[in-house]
């Protein structure tokens, strides 16, 4: 590695340009946010839009504060987070192992293929009433919904990753006398790590879809519940405020997975 005072002039200019570009992009990102929020606020203040149906940033902020103080916002966040995280973990872990099973046995794969296709194309929300009857209207039903929505994608993504293992690498291991477990442990699992990471990213999104949809259907608590309730009693401030909180949480959870990805890559390469 060259040290800094050996860098050529072109290199310095190039690095400077990259840095400038980054600063510009971040500035524009914030500027865009401020413009949207600002225009929204101004339009609402001067009654150009009806803030009763479109709310406004200041009303959203006020509502969040009220929710926090009076209505136990943290409890609602806790409920939704719990359902999402548990649904995510079950879908991901169970999905991974089912995918492994399907990789292991071509026969089982062939037998189950039509069932997976049907489950995949079925709009899971149609099962809502059944879920309510089976699991009641608490967190259990919502977690089940989240798992149902997430697991099929998790299985299919992972199975694809397992099956796309290089045939020649398998051949190479077999020529060394490897059995199927060795092929799995030495090659298929480590080789599909990038697929696992993208599966986790997709599954985070799926878990949110599942838990919020579940809360729309049943629940007596959670952010999805607040949104639906707000809609029913026509309190758009409540709907918007809960949506904003949801955005923040979803981004946070995605960032956690991205962090995990960085960690895995570092661990793997060093």
């Amino acid at each position: 590695m060259k040290n800094k005072n050996q860098l050529s002039r072109d290199r310095i200019l190039y690095l400077r340009k990259i840095k400038r570009d980054n600063v510009l992009v971040w500035t524009m990102r914030f500027a865009l946010l401020i413009i949207i929020v600002g225009v929204w606020e101004v339009l609402a203040t001067f009654n150009i839009i009806d803030s009763f149906i479109s709310s406004s940033p200041s009303r959203i902020a006020k509502t969040i504060k009220e929710l926090f103080v009076e209505n136990n916002l943290l409890k609602h966040i806790g409920v939704t987070m719990y359902e999402t995280v548990v649904g995510f973990l079950i879908a991901v872990i169970l999905g991974y192992f089912i995918a492994l099973l399907l990789w292991w046995s071509e026969r089982i794969r062939r037998i189950l293929e039509p069932y997976i296709v049907v489950l995949n194309s079925l709009p899971k929300i149609a099962l809502g009433p059944i879920i309510i009857v089976w699991f009641g209207s608490g967190s259990k039903a919502i977690i089940f919904m989240a798992v149902l929505i997430g697991i099929i994608v998790a299985i299919m993504t992972m199975l694809n990753g397992f099956l796309s293992t290089d045939k020649n690498k398998i051949l190479l291991l077999k020529s060394m006398g490897a059995n199927k477990i060795q092929i799995l442990i030495k090659l298929v699992i480590p080789g599909s790590l990038p697929t696992l990471i993208s599966m986790l990213k997709i599954s985070v999104g799926m878990a949110w879809v599942g838990s919020i949809m579940g809360e729309y259907l049943v629940s007596r608590a959670g952010l999805g519940y607040l949104i639906v309730y707000g809609g029913q009693v026509f309190k758009l401030d409540l709907v918007m405020a809960s949506t904003v909180v949801l955005c923040v949480l979803a981004t946070f959870m995605y960032a956690m997975v991205a962090l995990l990805e960085r960690f895995i890559i570092k661990f793997k390469m060093k």
Binding site: D166, N168, K169, L171, L172, L173, S175, M176, G177, A178, Q182, K186, L187, P190, G191, L193, K268
Partner: peptide, 30 residues
């Protein structure tokens, strides 16, 4: 047959293993 080694068109070194660990692979398998 432990008495043969197979070499293919591409090197098929496992990218997540160091060179050393790649070279140990047959030892682990056998």
């Amino acid at each position: 047959n432990d008495n043969l080694g197979y070499m293919l068109q591409k090197d098929h070194l496992f990218p997540w293993r160091t060179i050393e660990k790649n070279v140990f692979l047959p030892l682990e398998i056998k």
